[in-house]
Design a protein around this nucleic acid. Structure first.
Lengths: 235, 235
DNA sequence: CTGCTGCATTATCAAATTGTTACCAAAAAC
DNA sequence: GTTTTTGGTAACAATTTGATAATGCAGCAG
């Protein structure tokens, strides 16, 4: 009977590869799998965002030129969502367009790699980028405010030691607001960051979720700024 | 049938030798057995993969030039399987082809040794490679949570002293979840880490395995986080 | 070779939970 | 005082998971 053991211990990281050329995806994917990275792939920006939400990559390799939604647009949308605020993103650029490289970095990429891609270079850059964002995998990512604790790793919220069960959207919404206490998030912004850009929901949806959160936590940590949005605040 | 030598006490390691020339296999095999390694052999890539699954070597000596499936192709296939992700692999190369050596290393070999093989050199390299992947072989790797014990070496789970028989996938799944108690594992992540990157299985597969585990253990140690994933938790 | 046996996966349906909307009342803004 | 915006409630829709049985497959004993 096989001893499965090691393969599930320390993984170097999860990487999402986004490119419309299957050959390139295949090539990179193959190279990185060999090094123990977990790989997911997408062939355009729309798919990329969808997969990223599920896969939660530590790093995204993002082609600039793509159909359906280009790299620039994709990174913009990703960076707006709280869960990808601190995800490493490396652009893949055809060396033709030097201008876009610079633009890419300004927009929020951490690095860029010119095609054709050299495996050694790729590996090095990836290691560097991942090191920069090294989240202690052993340590929980959590936000604490006095008696309230939001643990993103365990997906739990506790208030005065009691665990409060929040549904996914509720949790995401609270996490977003709590990520910048005091800051007002516009309704529009909340929609974008929690629901994404292409999902369309009615006006009342946010309200209802806010209400449920307030109800579950008991005290009102969320303040309404009428006509504008909501903000998280410890009293 | 691999020639195991059960009576050996402290095993320095299990080595799979893959070469199509019986003389070389014999030569290396003889040398390494003398040093206390457990040896298994294969004469081509296809046989190598088959034997590797059974034998679970700590290190594979892999000839590049072989009939049926060459070393390059073999290592590619091995590296993709999670259980060999972290197995040391050393290429055996005829010094004729220098280019392939480099290629081999890039692909995921840990080292290469040029033929003709010198026993001292071979021994040194093997020690080095094994050290790099050193796993506490002497001590059982186990996780304990109160009355529950998961022994990764023996492949057993006991609860309140009673041994619980889990199937392979069930065991892998439980091990993964228990490796970070409290942490939520996304369904996708579970799929990747237990089933591998290229295996495609339906949505319900994880559920069914989770259910079987719950059923066998009796108490529910696994918590569902709806829309997100599962987590292991002692209550 | 044949028929077991146990495991992994899928199919199907039921149940539970979650997300969204409709509607109206309440509060604030103008 | 009207208009706009949000809160509360419940209904509804959608999604997700649980339970169960069935299928297919590989290993194995005879």
């Amino acid at each position: 009977m096989p001893d499965l053991e090691e393969h599930m211990e320390v993984l170097p990281g999860k990487i999402l590869i986004v490119d419309d050329e299957p050959d390139i995806v295949e090539f990179i994917s193959y190279n990185l799998k060999g090094k123990g990275y977990l790989i997911s792939t997408a062939r355009d920006g729309v798919e990329a965002i969808r997969k990223a939400k599920d896969f939660r990559p530590d790093l995204i390799l993002l082609d600039i030129m793509m159909p359906n939604k280009d790299g620039i647009q994709t990174i913009k949308e990703l960076r707006v969502m709280p869960e990808f605020e601190e995800t490493a993103i490396i652009f893949l650029t055809a060396l033709s367009d030097e201008k876009s490289e610079i633009e890419g970095l300004k927009i929020g990429a951490d690095d860029y790699i010119a095609k054709p891609i050299k495996p050694e270079l790729l590996a090095t850059r990836i290691r560097t980028a991942l090191r920069r964002f090294r989240k202690d995998d052993d340590q929980d990512q959590k936000l604490t405010f006095g008696e309230l604790e939001i643990n993103k790793t365990k997906f739990t919220v506790t208030y005065k030691g009691n665990e409060i069960i929040l549904a996914k959207k509720e949790f995401e919404l609270l996490s977003l607001l709590a990520s910048k206490p005091g800051r007002v998030f516009l309704r529009n912004e909340i929609l974008q960051r929690v629901w994404g850009t292409d999902v369309i929901v009615g006006d009342r949806t946010i309200d209802v979720h806010i209400r449920k959160i307030r109800q579950k936590i008991g005290i009102d940590l969320i303040t309404t700024v009428k006509g504008v949005g909501y903000k998280f605040e410890m009293v």
